[in-house]
C-alpha cells in the first residue's frame, strides 16, 4: 500500500480511537473513563469521515458527545461528587464481560472476513454523493419509514416514563 498523507491521517485517527478506547476500559477513575470515551467517539467520527459518511460523523458527535456522554457525567456527578471515584471490579464481572467481548470480537471478525470489498471506494472513479439527502429519502420515504416511526414511539414512551418517575407522587 502506498503511504500518503491520507493514510497517515487515517492511522492517526485509528491510533487515537484504539488508544483512548483502551483507556476507557483500563482507567480506574470513572470520570477519566468518560472523558477518554469522548476522545474515542471523536476518533470514530473521524473514521466515519474517511468512510465518506459526513452526516453520520456529525450525528455521532452531536448525539454521543453532546448528549449521551453529558448525561452520563451528569449522573456520575449527581450521585457522587467526590473526586476519587474508583471502579471496583469483581472476578465474576471480569469473566462475564470478557466472555461477551470475546463473542463480539468473533462476530466482528466473521463479518470482516466475509466482506468482499477491500478497496478504496473512489478507485473505480465513482463520485460519491453527499449522504444527507439519501439518508433522508431512505428514512422518510422508502425502506425505513416503519422502523423510524417505531423508534420515535419508543422515545416518546421513554420520555413519558421519565416524566412520570421524576414527578412527585400526588396522594388523593
Amino acid at each position: 500500500m502506498e503511504f500518503t498523507l491520507k493514510t497517515f491521517i487515517f492511522y492517526g485517527f485509528a491510533l487515537i480511537t484504539i488508544a483512548s478506547a483502551l483507556a476507557v476500559v483500563t482507567v480506574r477513575n470513572i470520570v477519566h473513563a468518560a472523558f477518554a470515551l469522548m476522545v474515542t467517539l471523536f476518533g470514530v467520527a473521524g473514521l466515519y469521515v474517511f468512510l465518506q459518511a459526513d452526516f453520520l460523523a456529525a450525528t455521532q458527535v452531536i448525539v454521543y458527545v453532546g448528549g449521551i456522554l453529558v448525561l452520563i457525567l451528569f449522573g456520575v456527578m449527581m450521585t457522587s461528587g467526590r473526586l476519587e471515584m474508583r471502579i471496583h471490579i469483581e472476578r465474576g464481572q471480569l469473566l462475564l464481560g470478557g466472555g461477551i467481548s470475546l463473542a463480539l470480537l468473533m462476530l466482528l471478525l466473521t463479518v470482516i472476513a466475509n466482506t468482499p470489498i477491500w478497496k478504496n471506494l473512489t478507485d473505480d472513479g465513482t463520485q460519491l454523493a453527499p449522504t444527507t439527502e439519501r439518508i433522508g429519502q431512505l428514512i422518510l420515504n422508502e425502506k425505513f419509514l416503519l422502523p423510524f416511526e417505531v423508534v420515535s414511539v419508543l422515545l416518546l414512551v421513554a420520555l413519558i416514563g421519565a416524566a412520570l418517575i421524576s414527578r412527585k407522587e400526588v396522594r388523593d
Binding site: 469522548m38 456529525a58 458527535v61 452531536i62 458527545v65 453532546g66 456522554l69 457525567l73 444527507t132
Partner: peptide, 19 residues
C-alpha cells in the same frame, strides 16, 4: 455540505469542557 450541522456538533462539545 453539512455546514450548519457541523457547527451544532462542534459547539455541543463545549459543554464537555465546562464539565
Amino acid at each position: 455540505n453539512i455546514g450548519i450541522f457541523y457547527i451544532m456538533a462542534i459547539s455541543s462539545v463545549i459543554v464537555m469542557g465546562v464539565i
